[in-house]
């Protein structure tokens, strides 16, 4: 196998919460010393319950949070300690698809503006091609160009999730971190989005770091998974192997909990 496209080594993050009393400093170890590699065109699942540290990991990998220790490498380049401006150049390569919620898109920007932003920032297309490019993106995620003038609030949850996806793929990234992309969607819509994600992966040759608590979703998307518990990776391996023959106690409990 070739070199990993994303490599996380001994990554830790602790939050210090200052209490009201003088000595009241609580340290929360959200992520403890985790390591994993993701290879090109792979789809790596990070699963766990709420509070297991999987979302913190996603934010760390994207440098939306500052890690406490450890290293993050993409394409062999250490991005752990890049400054804000330095990191901004790498945002083109690694993108995130957030969980759709009321305000994950600026509610006062039209769909067109939202999609144009990444194009402008990273100079993806010339100014004259913005229109064409946004149309193309909209079509790719199953929306129509006439949606451009709409505001996120005028669209359904599923459509908003599609816009979030379109924004992520606009800069032509190679890695996309999907943070619970279907968790807040209705059952009848979840399938659409998951299918879209899988299609895009094929079409654009993407690599996913897929974060979810839903083991059913994992089954469809991921080839390798890591199970997180209490900030640590407790089990990692091929998806089928882990889910069908779980070794750790926690993984067993998790698999049993599927209804």
């Amino acid at each position: 196998m070739s070199d990993p496209i994303l490599r996380v080594k001994n990554l830790s993050k602790h939050f210090i919460i200052t209490g009201s009393n003088i000595a009241g400093k609580t340290i929360i170890n959200a992520v403890r010393n985790i390591s994993f590699d993701i290879y090109e065109h792979d789809s790596f699942g990070l699963i766990g319950e709420s509070g297991s540290g999987k979302s913190t990991t996603a934010n760390l990998v994207l440098r939306l949070l500052e890690p406490s220790s450890g290293t993050i490498e993409i394409f062999g380049k250490d991005i752990t300690w890049l400054d804000e401006a330095g990191m901004r150049r790498h945002r083109k390569d690694i993108q995130i698809i957030f969980q759709q919620s009321g305000n994950s898109l600026d509610p006062k920007m039209t769909v067109g503006e939202l999609l144009m932003e990444p194009l402008k920032i990273h100079g993806i297309a010339g100014e004259k091609e913005y229109d064409k490019e946004t149309d193309r993106l909209l079509e790719m995620v199953g929306l129509t160009p006439k949606d451009k003038s709409k505001y996120p609030s005028q669209m359904s949850g599923g459509q908003n999730q599609r816009i979030i996806i379109a924004r992520a793929i606009a800069v032509r990234p190679r890695i996309i971190v999907c943070d619970e992309p279907v968790a807040s969607l209705d059952v009848s819509v979840q399938g659409q989005i998951l299918n879209l994600l899988m299609d895009l992966k094929e079409e654009l040759g993407l690599t996913y770091l897929f974060i979810t608590h839903d083991l059913k979703v994992v089954r469809h998307i991921c080839s390798r998974i890591a199970v997180m518990y209490n900030g640590e990776i407790v089990e990692m391996g091929e998806m089928r192997e882990v889910l069908e023959k779980p070794r750790g106690d926690y993984t067993k409990l998790l698999v049993e909990s599927i209804l």
Partner: peptide, 22 residues
Amino acid sequence: KQPFIRSEVAIGKGRIKIAVEN
């Protein structure tokens, strides 16, 4: 603290731009 600010950071928007545009 709104989630959309985080997504603006994620697409690589600079601080001042976020302040002015968002």
